[in-house]
């Protein structure tokens, strides 16, 4: 019962926040609304018993990525609403209409609704997989395919750090 109430509250909050992000003209408010969405999604991860991912979602998305966004918005001083004028055109209307059509097509196709559970699936073993221990055991298990991508990710992050410095610095 608690799960049902929590799901609906979080779902409605996240959808409202994401729509507010698109609708509002002020980039700082957009960023705030997106932080709200991220927090709701993190709480939904806890409902899905993925505690580690939930904590990482808050640390990485809400704590680091969005602060970087806010930092850049404030650095470029685009806080005033008139800084980026939207051209009056039909584009938003058409885009919204196409988006709604896309959503309806997605829902009508039935691939989201009619999920079948395969014969051997055991959702009950999922519970301990979401903890730090479960993630660690599976991520660093040499018998599984995750170890190499994990190491490759570290190189990706290093390259990104160097790239960001070169992009943003005036004289290297």
């Amino acid at each position: 019962m608690v799960t049902v109430i929590a799901f609906w509250v979080l779902a409605i909050l996240s959808v409202v926040a994401s729509i507010a992000m698109v609708v509002t003209k002020n980039p700082v408010r957009s960023a705030l609304a997106l932080v709200g969405t991220f927090l709701c999604v993190a709480a939904l991860y806890i409902l899905l018993s993925a505690q580690f991912i939930a904590a990482v979602q808050v640390i990485v998305y809400a704590g680091a990525i969005m602060v970087l966004f806010l930092f850049v918005i404030m650095l470029l001083n685009l806080g005033s609403p008139g800084a980026l004028r939207e051209r009056g055109s039909l584009q938003p209307v058409i885009a919204t209409g196409m988006g709604i059509c896309f959503l309806i097509a997605l829902l009508l196709s039935g691939s989201l609704i009619k999920l079948r559970l395969p014969a051997g699936a055991r959702p009950e073993v999922y519970e301990p997989l979401g903890t730090v221990r479960g993630i660690g055991i599976n991520l660093f298990d040499p018998k599984q395919p995750w170890l190499f991508p994990f190491e490759a990710t570290s190189i990706l992050l290093l390259v990104a750090v160097v790239g960001a410095i070169i992009m943003a610095k005036r004289k290297v």
């Binding site: 700082v28 705030l32 932080v35 505690q51 580690f52 939930a54 904590a55 990482v56 808050v58 640390i59 809400a62 704590g63 680091a64 602060v67 806010l70 930092f71 404030m74 806080g79 903890t131 730090v132």
Partner: peptide, 27 residues
Amino acid sequence: VNIGVLYILAVSSLQVYGVVLAGWASN
């Protein structure tokens, strides 16, 4: 909770919003 340390890190990483938003909203 079994993610206690991560929880504290997550919540204290949210604390930066108080500072940033106060600085921005004061104009």
